[in-house]
Design a protein around this nucleic acid. Structure first.
Length: 338
DNA sequence: TATCCAACGGGAGATAGCAA
DNA sequence: TTGCTATCTCCCGTTGGATA
C-alpha cells in the first residue's frame, strides 16, 4: 500500500509537505506542489480515511444497522440513505443483524471501535425487557455519536426516529376490505412480540371494531413476517376450505408467502378471496402482477432518516424529532371479492 | 515564505520479563 | 520450555511550532 511517506520519498520532500498539498493548507512552492501532484497521480495514491481521522478523533463514516439486508424494503431505504450520504461526502458501513440481538450488539461494538460520526439503527428485537433496553442504552452511550432509529421504535429510549404509521396502514387495509363489502376479514400478522407488528394488528382490530365486524379467531393467522410462515398458514387455511371473504397481510414477505400459496391452490385474488397487503413489492410490477396494497415511499424514508442524522450531527443540542412516514392505499381490485 | 520535525491517537504486532 | 502479562514500537495523516 502506497502511503504519504512513500509519496514524500518519491517527491524528495517530507510527508508534511505532501499533507499540505493534499489538504490545500499552508505554504507550498508551486514547483514542489506540481512535483508532488505528479507523483500522487503516477502512483494512484489515495489517503487512508482511518489515518486521516486519527488527529481529529472523528470520521466521516456513518454506521447503518439493519435486521434484514435481503428484504427489499431495507434495500430501498438504504438507497435513500446513500443518496444523502453521497451529497454530504460521508461514507457508510452496513451491518446486517439477521434479527439477532447478539449480532446487533456486535455491530454496535464495531461501530464504536470505528468511531463513526453517527448511527442509523433499525433494531433487531423489540427491547421489551427493561434489562435489554438498559444494555442498549449503555452501548449507544459508549458509541458517543448520534443515533437515529429507523422503522422500529424502542420504548424508554429518547432518540430521533423515523417510523411508519403501522396502526394507520393496517387500519386502511382492513377498512378497504370492509368497504368493498367483505363480511369476514382475516389477517396474517407479523411477530406480535415486535412493537410494529402489534401496531399493525391493533390497526386491524380497530377497523373491525369501528365497522362492527366480529374478529373471528380462526381467521387471525399468527405469522412472523416471514414468507415461509405465511405460505404455510395460507396453505393450511385453503386446505381446510374455511376461508374469510378477505384477508390482509402485514408486510411484503408475508404477502409473497400468501400469494405463493394462493397461486399454488389456484385461488383467484379478487374472486375467491379478497386481499390487501401492507408494503409494495416492486418486483411484482415487472410481471404486471396487480394486487391492492398499502405503500410508503421507502427511498424517501431512507433520505429522511439520513437527513435527520445529518441535522443531529450539525446540531447536537436540538430537540428529538419523530417523523412518521405516511401510508398510501393503492387499490387494484383485489380488495373486492366478487 | 517554504519546509521540516514531532506529537497526536487507537490498535496490532513485537518484544521483554516473569512464573510455572 | 511454555504460557501469560506488561510494555514497547510502529502504522497512518494531520497540524502546531520551529527553523532556514
Amino acid at each position: 500500500m502506497i502511503t504519504i511517506k512513500d509519496i514524500a520519498g518519491l517527491a524528495g520532500v517530507s510527508k508534511s509537505t505532501v499533507s499540505r498539498v493534499l489538504t490545500g493548507t499552508g505554504y507550498v512552492n508551486d514547483e514542489t506542489r506540481e512535483k508532488i501532484e505528479k507523483v500522487i497521480k503516477e502512483n494512484s495514491y489515495e489517503p487512508s480515511e482511518s489515518a486521516r481521522s486519527l488527529p481529529k478523533r472523528i470520521t466521516n463514516t456513518i454506521g447503518v444497522v439493519v435486521p434484514e439486508i435481503d428484504n427489499s424494503f431495507y434495500t430501498e431505504v438504504l438507497n435513500g440513505i446513500s443518496q444523502v450520504v453521497d451529497q454530504n461526502n460521508f461514507n457508510i458501513i452496513y451491518f446486517n443483524t439477521n434479527n439477532s440481538l447478539a449480532k446487533e450488539e456486535k455491530a454496535l461494538q464495531m461501530l464504536k471501535a470505528q468511531r463513526v460520526r453517527g448511527v442509523i439503527l433499525a433494531p433487531a428485537v423489540d427491547y421489551s425487557e427493561p434489562e435489554a433496553t438498559k444494555k442498549l442504552k449503555l452501548l449507544l452511550e459508549k458509541i458517543n455519536a448520534p443515533v437515529v432509529l429507523l422503522d422500529r421504535d424502542i420504548d424508554g429510549i429518547s432518540l430521533d426516529k423515523v417510523v411508519y404509521d403501522n396502526f394507520g396502514s393496517a387500519f386502511a387495509a382492513t377498512e378497504a376490505l370492509i368497504k368493498a363489502g367483505n363480511k369476514t376479514v382475516g389477517i396474517i400478522t407479523g411477530d406480535l412480540n415486535l412493537k410494529h407488528a402489534r401496531g399493525r394488528y391493533e390497526g386491524y382490530l380497530e377497523a373491525m371494531k369501528q365497522y362492527n365486524i366480529p374478529v373471528i379467531e380462526k381467521y387471525v393467522l399468527h405469522g412472523d413476517f416471514m414468507a415461509d410462515t405465511a405460505y404455510s398458514l395460507a396453505w393450511k387455511m385453503y386446505e381446510q376450505r374455511d376461508i374469510p371473504d378477505g384477508i390482509i397481510s402485514c408486510n411484503n414477505r408475508t404477502t409473497l408467502g400468501f400469494l405463493r400459496a394462493t397461486r399454488e391452490r389456484k385461488m383467484k385474488l379478487g374472486r375467491e378471496i379478497a386481499f390487501v397487503g401492507i408494503d409494495h413489492i416492486d418486483v411484482l410490477d415487472i410481471i404486471d402482477y396487480k394486487y391492492s396494497h398499502v405503500t410508503r415511499d421507502t427511498v424517501e424514508m431512507g433520505r429522511a432518516t439520513m437527513q435527520l442524522l445529518m441535522d443531529r450531527i450539525k446540531n447536537p443540542l436540538k430537540m428529538n424529532t419523530v417523523q412518521i412516514v405516511p401510508y398510501k392505499l393503492v387499490l387494484k381490485g383485489t380488495e373486492l371479492r366478487k
